[in-house]
Design a protein around this nucleic acid. Structure first.
Lengths: 184, 184
DNA sequence: GCACCCTGGTTGACATGTCAACCAGCACTG
DNA sequence: CAGTGCTGGTTGACATGTCAACCAGGGTGC
C-alpha cells in the first residue's frame, strides 16, 4: 500500500526538483560564461584551494566530493591538460597521487569567485527571506545527516567515512575566517 | 566589491548543494535498482503518462522538461530501442514528431512509481516537518518564479514560453485527481 | 622474504549530454 | 509557385560520467 504524497509534500518535492533543474542550469551557465570553468571544475578547485598547501590526495578529494575515483581521475586528467592542477607522487604511499593546485588554477578560481557569488545571490539567496534561508539550512542539515549515514556504495566496507560536517565553506580561501563563494 | 555570503547564507547554499548531491544520488540509485529506469527515463515517462492519450510533440516535451531537443531526441532513440516509447509522424505538421508512450512504457512507470515515492519519502519528505515542507515549497516557488522569466537560451527568441506553473504532479496518472509520485 | 589480499589509482569501453551543422517542411512575399 | 527564411527535429563529433578490469604498492601471517 503506497503512501502517496499529499499536496503540500508534492509541492515541496516537485518544487525542489524544478528549482534544482533551473537554478543549477543558470548558475553553471553564468559560471561558464564568466570564467570558462564548469561546475565540476569549480568544485574541484574550490576544494583544493581550501586546504593546507593547496593539495590533497586523490582519494581524500574523491571521498569529500563524493565522486568516484574514476570520475575524479578522468576529470583531473583534463584539468591537468588545461594547467589548472598537477599530479605528484605521494611521499608516504607509493601508490598515492597528490593533487596540487597550480598558480593558474589558483588564479582561475579567485578570478571566478566574485561573479559566481553574485550569480548565486541574484538567482537564489537574494530571492529568499532570512527566515527561509534559515529553514533551508535546517532542511539540508536533516536530509544530509540522514544520507551521510548511508555508506558510500563500495564493494567492501569503507562505509560512512565522511565526517557529518555539512558546511565547510568552499572558496578561494584567503579572505580568511568569513568563508566565501563556493559551492558544494 | 563583492558581497560575499554571510554564515547563514553560506550554510543554506552549501547545504542545498550537498543535499542535492546526496539526495539525488540516493534517489536515482534506488530508482535504478528497483526498476531499471534512470532518472531521465522516469521524467520522460512521467511527463508522457500525464498527457491526454499518452503522447506529446517532441518540442512540447523538450520545452516542458527544459531539455534541449537534441538531448531529448537522443534519449528517445534509446528509450525507443528499449520499447518504452515510439515516434510517429505528426498529422498537422510534416516536420513534427509525436512521442507515444507504449504499453510497456506505461507499465514500466506504473510499476516503478510506488517504490520511487517510498524512496523519496524515506530520504526526504519523512525527514522534514510540515512547516519545513511548506517553507520549502515557498522557496522553490520564489526561485523558480524568478528563473522561469529568464528566457531559454536559444539563438533567436522563442523566449519564456513555458507557463509559470510549478507543480503539475508527475506520476503514472490514473489514481486521478490526487497527483502521485513523480519527479520534476 | 614470500604468498596473499586489500587499497589507491588508472584505464578502456561504453552510456549519456552538448554543440553545431544540416535538412526537410511550413510560411510569407512577390 | 519560386525565393527566402524560420522552425522542428535529427545527426555526428566530441565532452563528460559510469562501470569493470587491471595493476602496482602496502600490510599481514608465516
Amino acid at each position: 500500500m503506497t503512501r502517496w504524497l499529499d499536496d503540500a509534500q508534492m509541492r515541496a518535492w516537485l518544487g525542489y526538483r524544478r528549482m534544482r533543474l533551473l537554478l543549477d542550469l543558470q548558475v553553471s551557465r553564468d559560471l561558464a560564461e564568466g570564467s570558462g570553468l564548469s561546475d565540476a571544475d569549480y568544485d574541484v578547485l574550490s576544494n583544493l584551494s581550501e586546504t593546507e598547501g593547496h593539495q590533497l590526495r586523490l582519494s581524500e578529494l574523491s571521498a569529500h566530493m563524493r565522486w568516484s575515483k574514476s570520475r575524479l581521475s578522468h576529470h583531473l586528467t583534463r584539468m591537468q591538460q588545461r594547467g589548472l592542477v598537477t599530479r605528484e607522487e605521494c611521499p608516504s604511499d607509493g601508490r598515492g597521487a597528490v593533487i596540487l593546485l597550480t598558480d593558474d588554477g589558483w588564479r582561475a578560481i579567485r578570478t571566478a569567485a566574485p561573479a559566481h557569488v553574485e550569480s548565486v545571490r541574484r538567482h537564489f539567496i537574494d530571492r529568499l527571506t532570512d527566515e527561509q534561508i534559515r529553514v533551508l539550512g535546517d532542511i539540508a542539515e536533516s536530509v544530509i545527516g540522514h544520507l551521510d549515514e548511508v555508506p558510500v556504495r563500495t564493494p567492501s566496507g569503507e562505509a560512512g567515512k565522511q565526517p557529518a560536517e555539512i558546511a565547510a565553506g568552499k572558496q578561494p580561501a584567503e579572505k580568511a575566517a568569513r568563508r566565501q563563494p563556493a559551492k558544494e
